[in-house]
Amino acid sequence: MIRVVLADDEAMIRAGIRSILATDPGIEVVAEAADGRAAVDLVRAHRPGIALLDIRMPRMDGLSAAAELRVAMPGVAVIMLTTFDEDEYVARALAGGAAGFLLKASDPRELLIGVRAVADGGAYLSPRIARKVITRLTGGRLARADAARAKVQRLTPRERDVLALVGRGLSNQDIGLGLSLSEGTVKAHVSAILLRLGLSNRVQAAIVAYEADLIGGDLGEG
């Protein structure tokens, strides 16, 4: 069962999200909050697998809540949910350790896909967000590509294989199936990759994989 703490300052939005999540029998909303401070407290109390946070909330916004949870509850994956897709929000969310970024205007199925993907150890960006990230990356592509290639040279060949599949958004289970590895071994490889490359989360790893030309296609697919 995927346990979720949901935080949004609009009661009707929370009700809609809760209803969508309830269509999947494998997902349970265990607590709800109307502000970021309460969300952090509820995550500490309930220890869910996922914290689904709106970006704009009173007392503490979702980005600040995500940053606090990254330190206090690193085992909880954070998905940001918002009506806004401005570059500043996306950049801060990724830097703050978010494993997913979803737009409220997206197809409801995307919410379920994103929650499932992140719960399985993957990362998920709404396709619209993924395109913005890639467009932003291509601005200084050559310099970043050289830096990314230099980074991935620190990895073993197997770690580069794993990184390429992380870049395609695959879960640990799917990576294991693709490379004939146990899920535990994949987790160990992912942890080693993040440590060697000085990265905070799988989304940042996926960006490095893209910049180093380890993968093809858009982030968020696969």
Rank of each mutant, 00 (worst) to 15 (best):
R70T: 12
F84R: 09
S171R: 01
I2S: 05
Q153C: 08
L112I: 09
A91P: 01
V118R: 04
I79T: 00
A45W: 04
Y124G: 01
D146S: 15
E159Q: 12
P25V: 11
R37P: 00
G122I: 05
L137A: 02
A95L: 00
G16I: 01
D9R: 13
G169E: 03
I79R: 00
R37S: 09
S180V: 01
A145L: 13
G222I: 01
P108D: 05
M12N: 14
S182V: 07
G97N: 09
G139N: 14
A39P: 07
A38M: 10
A31T: 02
L195N: 13
Q153R: 14
I50K: 05
L214V: 08
L42W: 00
R202N: 15
G222T: 06
N201I: 06
V90M: 13
L53C: 04
G49F: 03
L111C: 00
A105G: 09
L102Y: 03
D87I: 06
G139A: 15
D54I: 04
V186Q: 05
V208L: 04
R47H: 15
V203T: 08
K151Y: 11
Y210T: 05
I55Y: 00
V186E: 03
R70Y: 14
E28D: 14
I113V: 13
T83V: 11
A164G: 04
I134F: 00
A66Y: 03
R47L: 14
D213P: 09
V4T: 01
G114T: 05
D87E: 15
L195E: 14
L165K: 01
R14W: 04
E211T: 03
L69S: 09
M57H: 02
E28C: 10
R92F: 03
L137G: 03
L142N: 10
R144Y: 00
M73I: 14
G220Q: 02
L63N: 06
G121F: 08
S171V: 08
K187W: 09
A188S: 11
A212R: 02
V162H: 06
P58W: 08
S182W: 10
L103S: 10
A34V: 12
V162L: 09
L194A: 13
V152P: 02
I27Y: 02
G139H: 13
L142H: 10
P157D: 05
E86N: 11
A192E: 15
I13P: 04
R47K: 15
A45T: 05
V162K: 02
L170M: 15
M12L: 15
L177R: 06
L170F: 15
G169P: 04
R144Q: 13
L179T: 03
L197W: 06
K151F: 12
T138I: 05
K132H: 10
L52S: 04
R144W: 02
D161I: 07
A38T: 11
N172W: 05
L103K: 10
